[in-house]
């Protein structure tokens, strides 16, 4: 069955791999992005996936974005809340701006987009929401009180909304990636990155495709008994 899927932050990194995997699996995919027009255009040219620009931390923009996608492609059956940013700094140096930006983009966006798509999923008695959490939301990380709080918040959000969606055929799950070879991780200083890789039992960074296949698994029609769950994909880096 061909489902319409929305992937936020879906034109680069993990999001791009998720968009592509869903498309290759027969979904009609809309990839949202926030800022990088050039990357979005290139992604669209290479993959043919429709791209939509808006700021996921903006409630009204999310409503408008969803309305536009549903007018273009039809009702959204699958929502992947993947958009995320980092604004690292130790607590002492962290400005309220950095806190707010990360909370609004990483966590607020889950609320905004679920709010916009949930009523339709309920009415149609089918929905798949996958939130992309993080190993750092599970284990914490130095210099990331904002990111760890937002990602940890995603896991709480997932479990609460799973309770509400269960009787309406809507599953809500999280995938918690470890360190994946993306622009975000490549921005980490090399010496730090070497240490990180050394502490991953599998001995390498993840690939975006490693995460995408977990999302595919959770969004399948026959995954309807899995809800409120988190699949960790981290090369054994953190087991809990």
């Amino acid at each position: 069955m061909s489902r319409v899927a929305l992937v936020t932050g879906g034109t680069r990194g993990i999001g791009a791999a998720i968009s592509l995997a869903l498309k290759n699996n027969g979904c009609q995919v809309a990839a949202n992005y926030g800022a990088n027009d050039e990357a979005a255009e290139r992604f669209h040219e290479v993959t043919g996936v429709a791209v939509y620009k808006w700021d996921v931390s903006d409630f009204a923009a999310c409503e408008a974005g969803v309305a536009q996608i549903e007018a273009d492609l039809g009702p959204i059956d699958i929502l992947v809340n993947n958009a995320g940013i980092t604004r690292d700094g130790t607590l002492q140096k962290m400005t309220p701006d950095r806190w707010q930006a990360v909370l609004d983009t990483n966590l607020g966006s889950c609320f905004n987009l679920c709010h916009a798509t949930f009523p339709g999923m309920r009415a149609r008695k089918f929905g798949r929401v996958v939130n992309v959490g993080s190993i750092n939301g599970q284990a914490g990380q130095y210099g990331q009180v904002n990111y760890a709080a937002a990602k940890s918040g995603i896991h709480g959000f997932t479990k609460a909304l799973a309770q509400e969606g269960a009787r309406h055929g809507i599953t809500v799950n999280a995938v918690a990636p470890g360190y994946v070879d993306t622009d975000m991780v490549r921005a980490v200083p090399e010496a730090v990155l070497e240490k990180i890789v050394a502490s991953i039992p599998v001995g390498r960074l993840g690939r975006a495709e490693d995460i995408a296949r977990a999302v595919l698994f959770l969004t399948a029609d026959d995954a309807d008994f899995i809800t409120g769950s988190t699949i960790s994909v981290n090369g054994g880096h953190h087991m809990y």
């Binding site: 799973a162 309770q163 269960a166 470890g178 039992p201 599998v202 390498r204 993840g206 690939r207 490693d210 977990a214 008994f225 899995i226 809800t227 409120g228 769950s229 988190t230 699949i231 960790s232 994909v233 981290n234 090369g235 054994g236 087991m239």
Partner: peptide, 12 residues
């Protein structure tokens, strides 16, 4: 790359 993980499935 998935190791040491648990997939929980219990209908919530």
């Amino acid at each position: 790359w998935t190791t040491g993980s648990t997939i929980t499935m219990n209908g919530g």
